[in-house]
Computed example of a mutant assay.
Amino acid sequence: MADLVVLYKMPTDPAAFDKYYYETHVPLAKKMPGLRKYTVTKGPIMTPGGPSPLHLIATLTFDSMAAIGAARASPEGQAAAADVAKFATGGADVHFAETAVV
Rank of each mutant, 00 (worst) to 15 (best):
V5M: 14
V5Y: 09
L7G: 04
Y8D: 01
Y8F: 06
Y8I: 01
K9R: 08
K9H: 09
M10V: 08
M10Q: 14
P11I: 15
T12P: 00
T12W: 09
D13V: 06
P14A: 02
A15Q: 15
A16W: 00
A16K: 06
F17T: 13
D18W: 00
K19A: 13
Y20K: 08
Y20H: 13
Y20F: 07
Y21E: 13
Y22C: 08
Y22N: 14
Y22D: 15
E23F: 01
T24S: 14
H25C: 07
H25K: 08
H25S: 03
V26H: 12
V26M: 12
P27R: 15
P27W: 14
A29N: 09
A29Y: 09
K30A: 11
K30N: 11
K30R: 14
K31I: 03
K31F: 05
P33T: 00
P33A: 00
P33L: 02
G34C: 04
K37T: 12
K37Y: 08
T39V: 08
K42T: 13
I45R: 10
M46P: 01
M46I: 04
M46N: 02
T47I: 12
T47F: 06
P48L: 10
P48R: 12
G49D: 13
G49L: 10
G50Y: 01
G50T: 00
G50N: 03
P51S: 07
P51C: 06
P51E: 08
P51D: 09
S52E: 07
S52H: 14
P53F: 10
P53W: 13
L54Q: 04
L54E: 01
L56N: 15
L56W: 03
I57M: 15
A58C: 10
T59F: 06
T59C: 09
T59G: 03
T61D: 04
T61K: 10
T61C: 06
F62R: 07
D63H: 06
D63R: 00
D63Q: 10
D63A: 13
S64P: 11
S64F: 11
S64Q: 11
S64A: 06
M65A: 10
M65W: 02
M65G: 07
A67L: 07
A67V: 01
A67C: 04
I68A: 07
I68T: 05
A71D: 00
A71H: 00
R72E: 11
R72F: 15
R72A: 13
A73M: 05
S74L: 05
S74G: 03
P75Y: 02
P75M: 04
P75V: 00
P75C: 03
G77C: 09
G77Y: 14
G77W: 10
G77S: 10
Q78R: 15
Q78A: 13
Q78G: 05
A79E: 09
A79D: 06
A79S: 07
A80Q: 11
A80E: 10
A82D: 15
D83N: 12
V84H: 07
A85D: 11
A88W: 05
A88P: 01
G90E: 08
G90D: 07
A92F: 00
A92R: 05
A92N: 01
A92H: 00
D93S: 09
D93K: 02
D93I: 04
V94C: 02
V94S: 02
H95Q: 07
H95G: 02
F96Q: 03
A97E: 12
A97L: 08
A97K: 02
